[in-house]
């Protein structure tokens, strides 16, 4: 009966358009005029209060745009049990706002009762694979819906890792039925940081499982040997190399919901809208994917 159950589960249904991470200072802009935006995304934890302006704004925006709820604190990659209270909070949020997509990260962000507020890396082994699969199952069962799991940007690796990251994510998706959120900037950042090729990573990545894309800016630093160390800073425009990588992905996958993330040094709304338009132009050029059932007509 597993098939019947998973068919009843709510699946991701964002429009194949550009979206932006919502910041409260852009609320009036978003509602003011026609926007090049099909959906907004919010960090789940910012909307876990009981009421007030956060929920009022979200409700108003959701009347106009599709909604993606993006969790940063579930700590799915922890070897410790998931925080059931936090999972219950996420369930309440999803029941209240009925988002078109719910996503989380292949990372951990807490230890014991301490919340570390960062997306921390894990080794990719048979042991961690089983743990992450159990956690993704638990979240999807609690929410009674498909979630998307995002590939991380990482700054270092583990000596114990035995499974390539793309294969690790592929196995999680296959075993849990979850979708994947492909952060193209993260692909670029982790490849540069580990001396590998982003194209090689993508050629191993299960692109058919991808239901949403993230794009963001990164900072460029270097490690103590002088090797490039890219930081997933979300505080600048999307880099040209990441745009090119994105276009290559979309050429293969067809149009996908594509989010512009800009969380630090947040610019004015016009700057964000320009980034969304740039993504929209690439989406419009993309060949349609055969399996896609609700593709928007190509304006070109």
């Amino acid at each position: 009966m597993q098939n019947d159950l998973s068919m009843m589960r709510r699946v991701t249904s964002l429009p194949q358009a550009a979206g932006i991470g919502f910041k409260p200072q852009h609320f009036d802009d978003l509602l003011a005029t026609d926007q090049p935006i099909g959906f907004i995304e919010v960090h789940a934890e910012n909307y876990m209060g009981a009421g007030g302006p956060p929920h009022a704004m979200l409700s108003a925006l959701h009347e106009r745009f599709a909604l993606s709820v993006h969790g940063v604190a579930m700590s799915i990659g922890s070897m410790q049990p998931l925080d059931r209270d936090h999972l219950a909070c996420l369930k309440i949020l999803c029941d209240r706002h009925q988002p078109e997509s719910v996503s989380e990260h292949l990372a951990w962000s807490s230890h014991g009762d301490v919340y570390l507020n960062d997306l921390l890396p894990l080794p990719y082994t048979e042991e961690t694979l089983e743990q992450v699969i159990a956690h993704v199952d638990q979240v999807q069962t609690a929410l009674d819906r498909e979630i998307l799991l995002e590939n991380p940007s990482t700054y270092l690796q583990f000596a114990d890792s035995t499974i390539p990251e793309a294969q690790f994510l592929s196995e999680i998706a296959r075993r849990t039925g979850c979708g994947l959120l492909l952060d193209v900037n993260n692909v670029f950042v982790q490849a540069r940081n580990h001396g590998t090729s982003p194209e090689g990573y993508l050629s191993d990545f299960p692109l058919a499982r991808v239901k949403q894309i993230h794009l963001a800016g990164h900072d460029v630093q270097s490690d103590e040997t002088g090797a490039p160390l890219l930081i997933d800073a979300h505080g600048s425009p999307v880099a040209a190399a990441v745009w090119r990588l994105y276009e290559r992905v979309i050429t293969v996958t067809g149009p996908l919901p594509t989010l512009i993330e800009w969380d630090n040094d947040v610019p004015d709304f016009a700057t964000l809208a320009d980034e969304a338009r740039a993504a929209g132009r690439i989406l419009a050029r993309a060949p349609q994917r055969q399996a896609a059932s609700h593709v928007r007509p190509d304006p070109g």
Partner: peptide, 11 residues
């Protein structure tokens, strides 16, 4: 147990 391609001690 941490490493980088550039270093065994990725401080």
């Amino acid at each position: 147990g941490l490493r980088a391609y550039t270093s065994q001690r990725p401080t």
